[in-house]
């Protein structure tokens, strides 16, 4: 049995003492709420009164009775299925573009990164005006031609796609990750491919893409998580409308917790969300063995 020397023990104690403020914070503000929310998900709890144990009832209601939840799931799945690939493709294309030698490249990089720095509330207000059906830039032009305005945020068909469009606009951080990844691709691989007679498209497909798949994996997973938890822009721009077509998972969760006093049900929702995210993450990780290439592996 390995025995710790006094010195090692003292070092360990010092180490734990130094990180103890963080450990306490983690325990109180992260671990405890997670465990508490699991317990509350099996209760009827309105925050104010004592929780009442109801077993699996919240989960059963979610799965079998809550018609709104089905709609919410449909909205969220659509957002993830379209929004995640769209965001990643846009970020990738931008990164490819800005990885080329060109004049004013630093300035363009800054410009495309800027949306990531704009606070969501400010961005929402700007978009609200840009997309305004009567006075907005696009619709003013459309109206001037006597065409029907485009109901970007006011039609069931358009609203989700408009939110996805705005999501694509704010891909500055993903673009930077791809840029870093692209710059890490060894020049020698391109030279070797060129020597082997690969054309530009082949070099892209057989060298660039495989070498950037680790970054892609990272971004797919973070985007998946982010889109399942999508809240701010949707809440600010459409608040779930029109006709609840943008009522996403987190918005519905928030409503239950803070508007309907159903913290128990909201806790169950949050655990279902966690399980869904975990499932998608695990599947993505598992599938990554087939499509992610780590240089040198």
């Amino acid at each position: 049995m390995k025995r710790w020397s006094r010195q090692t023990t003292r070092s360990a104690i010092n180490g734990y003492a130094f990180i103890s403020p963080w450990l306490v914070g983690l325990a109180l503000f992260t671990i405890y709420p997670i465990i508490a929310s699991l317990y509350y998900s099996f209760t009827r709890y309105d925050i104010v009164r004592e929780p009442r144990w109801i077993g699996l009832e919240n989960y059963v209601t979610l799965a079998t009775q809550d018609l709104i939840f089905r709609r919410v799931m449909g909205n969220t799945i659509y957002l993830v299925a379209v929004g995640v690939p769209a965001g990643i493709v846009v970020a990738y294309l931008l990164a490819l573009l800005l990885n080329n030698e060109m004049k004013l490249r630093p300035m363009f990089r800054t410009i495309f990164f800027l949306p990531a720095l704009v606070p969501a509330v400010a961005a929402a207000e700007v978009w609200r005006w840009v997309l305004n059906a009567q006075w907005g830039l696009i619709n003013a032009w459309v109206k001037a031609r006597g065409w029907p305005v485009i109901p970007f945020l006011s039609s069931e068909g358009w609203a989700k796609n408009t939110l996805i469009l705005i999501h694509c606009w704010a891909q500055g951080q993903a673009m930077m990750v791809f840029l870093a990844s692209l710059q890490d691709v060894p020049r020698s691989l391109y030279d070797a491919a060129e020597v082997d007679g690969a054309n530009r498209l082949q070099r892209f497909w057989y060298v660039t893409v495989p070498m950037t798949t680790p970054a892609m994996l990272f971004l797919v997973i973070t985007h998946l998580i982010g889109m399942f938890q999508y809240f701010t822009m949707g809440w600010l721009l459409t608040s779930g409308g029109p006709n609840f077509s943008t009522e996403f998972f987190s918005i519905y969760l928030y409503r239950n917790a803070f508007e309907y006093f159903k913290m128990g049900y909201a806790s169950a929702l949050s655990w279902v969300l966690f399980l869904i995210i975990m499932l998608f993450t695990v599947v993505t990780f598992r599938s990554s063995e087939r499509w992610v290439y780590y240089g040198g592996s």
């Binding site: 609200r128 305004n132 059906a133 009567q134 006075w135 907005g136 619709n139 305005v149 109901p151 945020l153 006011s154 039609s155 409308g241 029109p242 006709n243």
Partner: peptide, 13 residues
Amino acid sequence: GVEKLDAFSQANP
């Protein structure tokens, strides 16, 4: 027309 109305309402907040 519901979409026309929504567009109108959002246009004049």
